[in-house]
Design a protein around this nucleic acid. Structure first.
Length: 590
DNA sequence: GCCGTTTTCGGCCCGACTGTTTTCAGTCG
């Protein structure tokens, strides 16, 4: 069962409870748990495997024991009973925007919509026949709103899949450029999960500080869109042509800090923050801080000022997940997070040099990639082409690797001569970890590389113990194994990563002084941030690479840095934040 | 149902918007 499925199940429980008139705090608890699970980057099942379900924020004894039952037997008896107490047809209706549990229940019971499979079409028919308007609590307007919502739903514009972070960033950039064209913008920021740099993003939320909110909003509304979903004095929401929503909020500079904080979230961070403020007699909202006693409101132009008022130092957005950052802030032990400018080199770059690999080669020449590395201000670059096809003789592969090494050395010399610049080179190789844990590069060929990245490119669905043994065997395969590339092998939105016992794997990695890669490629962002956090806490070091297959991919390094930051990593935890000499002495062992 | 540098009981974040309403309920973020 995947996280989105579990989150949906918990929301179903909450919805059923609402219809049944349950205690509202119990309902809120379920919604919070669903929310929290939706934003996890590692699988709930992994928490279950480790007997750590209650480590998930919002999951306590009750929900945990039902989840346990769910993983053991495929369903929870208690929840099944809850579902059975309400008409099944209400659940599909919850996907229609504007319909919540109460309205869905009223519609289903009044109109006798009993078939969960056809309920949306049945509702549409009833609306068209004018049967909704006369119902108590509904009217002509809500009838037409429901029809419109169903139409949007049927067009498939309802966000189900989230976008990988770099794509959301691109969309946000376009919207921001468009807004800025209209002028009157004093400052603009992204909000929400985008600002917290979560690996996948739902909607694009943007904040603007301005003296002329109407002008900014008017300009925003001219951005190409399918539909205006919302439009008020403080903001507007558009449904973009790609099926995503873009949300704009405007505020005056004096109160901008409070708004920025409020809409950056996460929801759980804000809830914890508001509770903390309340203990000090302060009520926190999107406009500032209200004194509970006097009712007086104080505005904040910056987030720093707002956090200071609650007695906290500034908390970077990437940490705002209610995972201990508030306690750390109180104790002044927040980590000094790694920054993009700390990165001194990229060790996972594919050039167009063709060694007849079973995987794809890069687009750009060795010269072009050196130049790109120099432009980025790097001290070193590592070329990590895929290994040659493994179905050849050991001698043939070794020969290919020898010739390749010579070619890189030659190209490097001529580039240095021509460009009069210096970027140090490492001749690396990305080597497949075969299903049995052996490497796709023979020992004799290892002489012709400075080090290797080992990665899984096949058999992603092996059972947990098999994957774990496979990884451990591969990590022990050769002293030149220095990096575990895109460790889980996940592809955002299309492939689950491998299911390994990471604690055990991490132990081996630490003993052998190997590093885990944070792969910055948009669909990967792998290692996932929560595992980065675990790794950092266990004292492991990591490397951030782009896995570039073209020189422009090397610009994506900052997304890997984002993942590292969300995992609480500092500069000290990242080996490619080391200068050339130190890095070389780590990579190449005597 | 969750949660705890005063608590294992007794609290639980805050507001906007909309439509149907004469003061509010439902939905959303």
């Amino acid at each position: 069962m995947t996280n989105p499925e579990i989150a949906e199940l918990l929301r179903k429980v909450a919805a059923a409870y609402l219809v049944l008139g349950e205690n509202r705090f119990r309902i809120i608890a379920y919604e919070r748990a669903a929310d929290s699970i939706e934003h996890l980057t590692s699988e709930v099942k992994d928490y279950w495997d480790d007997h750590k379900l209650e480590d998930i924020p919002g999951v306590g004894g009750g929900i945990a024991s039902n989840l346990d039952e769910l993983f053991r037997f495929g369903k929870s008896k208690h929840w099944e009973t809850v579902f059975a107490s309400v008409p099944q047809a209400i659940f599909p209706l919850l996907r229609v925007p504007g319909l919540g549990p109460k309205k869905a229940f009223t519609l289903v019971t009044t109109l006798k919509l009993n078939d969960a499979k056809t309920v949306i079409a049945d509702l549409e028919k009833a609306a068209k026949a004018g049967k909704i308007a006369p119902m108590e609590g509904f009217g002509e307007k809500s009838q037409s709103v429901i029809l419109e919502a169903i139409a949007i739903y049927k067009r498939g514009a309802i966000k189900e899949n989230r976008m990988p972070l770099p794509y959301a960033d691109e969309v946000a950039r376009e919207v921001i450029l468009h807004i800025q064209k209209g002028g009157s913008v004093e400052r603009v920021d992204v909000l929400g999960s985008l600002r917290r740099q979560v690996s996948t993003i739902g909607d694009i939320d943007i904040a603007v500080s301005t003296r002329k909110p109407e002008a900014v909003l008017k300009q925003f509304l001219t951005f190409p869109h399918q539909k205006v979903i919302d439009h008020g004095p403080r903001g507007a929401t558009l449904l973009l042509s790609n099926g995503r929503q873009a949300d704009l909020r405007v505020q005056t500079p004096e109160a901008y800090g409070a708004m920025l904080q409020y809409f950056t979230g996460s929801k759980n961070h804000n809830i914890a923050l508001r509770s903390l403020a309340l203990e000090q007699g302060m009520s926190l909202n999107e406009y500032g801080i209200k004194s509970v006693k006097s009712g007086k409101m104080k505005q904040y132009s910056s987030e720093e000022g707002l956090y200071k008022a609650i007695g906290l130092p500034y908390i970077p957005p990437e940490l705002r997940e209610d995972k201990g950052e508030i306690a750390a802030a109180q104790k002044h032990t927040l980590p000094a997070l790694v920054e993009p400018r700390d990165i001194r080199g990229d060790l996972h770059v594919h050039s167009s040099y063709d060694l007849h690999s079973s995987h794809d080669v890069g687009k750009n020449s060795i010269h072009e990639l050196f130049t790109k590395a120099a432009d980025l201000g790097y001290e070193y670059i590592g070329f990590s082409d895929h290994n040659p096809r493994a179905n050849q003789s050991e001698g043939a592969i070794t020969d290919i690797m020898k010739r390749r090494q010579a070619a890189y050395v030659r190209q490097y010399a001529s580039w240095k001569h021509k460009d009069k610049k210096n970027v140090h080179m490492f001749v690396m190789c990305e080597v497949d970890i075969l299903p049995d844990g052996t490497l796709a590069l023979p020992d004799t060929a290892m002489e012709h590389v400075d080090g290797v990245i080992i990665s899984i490119h096949s058999a992603f669905t092996q059972p947990k113990n098999q994957v774990t043994e496979r990884l451990i065997k591969a990590l022990h395969a050769h002293p030149k194994v220095r990096i575990l590339g895109h460790p889980t092998g996940r592809l955002l939105g299309s492939r689950e990563g491998v299911d390994a016992d990471w604690e055990t794997v991490f132990d081996v990695i630490k003993k052998r002084d190997i590093v885990l890669e944070i792969n910055a490629f948009p669909e990967r962002l792998d290692l996932p941030d929560i595992l980065v956090y675990d790794a950092v806490q266990s004292g492991l070091r990591l490397i951030i690479d782009t896995d570039a297959h073209a020189s422009e991919h090397m610009d994506l390094m900052r997304y890997g840095v984002s993942v590292a930051r969300r995992g609480w990593a500092t500069k000290r935890d990242i080996v490619n934040a080391l200068g050339y000499t130190d890095f070389k002495s780590w990579l190449i062992r005597e």
